[in-house]
Design a protein around this nucleic acid. Sequence first.
DNA 1: TGAATAGTGTCTTTCAGACAATATGCC
DNA 2: GGCATATTGTCTGAAAGACACTATTCA
Lengths: 233, 233
Amino acid sequence: MTMEVYNGHMVKGYDVSKYDKPSVAVDILLFTIEDGELKLLLVKRNEEPFKNCWALPGGFIKMNESLESAAARELEEETGVKNIYMEQLFSFGEPKRDPRTRVISITYMALATKTDWALKASGDADQTQFFATSELPKLAFDHLKIYKYGLERLRSKLGYTNISFGLLPDHFTLTEMQNVYEVILDKKLDKRNFRKKILSMNLLVPLGKKSYGGAHRPAELYRFKKKEILYTD
Amino acid sequence: MTMEVYNGHMVKGYDVSKYDKPSVAVDILLFTIEDGELKLLLVKRNEEPFKNCWALPGGFIKMNESLESAAARELEEETGVKNIYMEQLFSFGEPKRDPRTRVISITYMALATKTDWALKASGDADQTQFFATSELPKLAFDHLKIYKYGLERLRSKLGYTNISFGLLPDHFTLTEMQNVYEVILDKKLDKRNFRKKILSMNLLVPLGKKSYGGAHRPAELYRFKKKEILYTD
DNA sequence: TGAATAGTGTCTTTCAGACAATATGCC
DNA sequence: GGCATATTGTCTGAAAGACACTATTCA
């Protein structure tokens, strides 16, 4: 049973405070690339339901923050990572998606590089971990569905935006960039066609510096012109 | 001040019922095509704020319905229209987007044809009306932003999906279909190129019947193979 | 000089876009 | 026959995809 005392507002002729409200959470897909694999950040739940199960980082929205701020705050609280690329994905709201109570989840996708990554002190490594997407554990709630949705979005945006800036360091070689594409798309790309396409998009600036680091020809280094999402059309 | 008595659930170590929750609403962009124009359904508000201002149809989510069901229900309640194509657009949640209280709006885009349209008895024509998108009145809240977002989505999906099935009758001519594209994209298309492209997408079935109706050559009638969203890729 | 990775060009096919003449039915 | 709309094909340029050899550095 529900009873509330609240300085309600009249909305459409009735006091909204008289009705139950769902809880609203944000959940975040944080992708990164490490060891030549696409990885997803998960946190281990220490409460029921799904106790000891891995889940997406996230939490409840506060009354005075925007959705995007809530996602950024939750991510920072759980990982120490901030100021990274983030975009809203989709809102999931099946009544029974959370067995406890009605929770609507507004999901975000975030992208981080190793240099963004500052979990170090802030997180407990047993509780917060990257998993290769090829070897994800069972996920709590409908988080597997959210992951699949986000992966599709990421794959598709690779094709017509500069979104990979979120996964690459400031300076990188075209081979490194191609590796990012190959890992996300899970297929090999032709080197000549890849370079032709990327360079024709006109998103990169060559630095005129070379990456030395092996018994082989050094590679030209590039950076993104803009580290904000751009669409090619 | 807020006081609540509630059979709260423990979530992440605290009782969510102890915290204020935002209200969650759905708002719907219902597009249709009439008189060669793209039109949007609006309802006139009869309460503050924005009293007498036009707004998107919508309302608060109930505890036991999914987001999609809530959008369908609200739309049917306000217009009598049901069983039409609908997709989730985006969630808007700036803390001050509603001056009364915190309201997060999960928005949907719906498409209707004249035959879907049954406002007749159910609605008050003074209160619920289609407006040509070229002549929209001032909209309440951030509804103009929502409209712009939805229009962009619709325009872009015309290019790589069969989404126009939502705006066309069961049987139609290629010229009628081209008109739908032209109205939404707000530009003229070349008739030969349009037909070449549409037919190559392989989404239509010719009916072998002709549309007679004027002092001129009759046109072949087509129907969509599937009246569900399909992507070309 | 051998190992390892960087860098580059051509051909073919496909798709988008510009463009105009013939076909059919009704009056 | 005249009017109104339906239907159809070619050319061109751009982009995608297949494909293999040369260049540079270091050990």
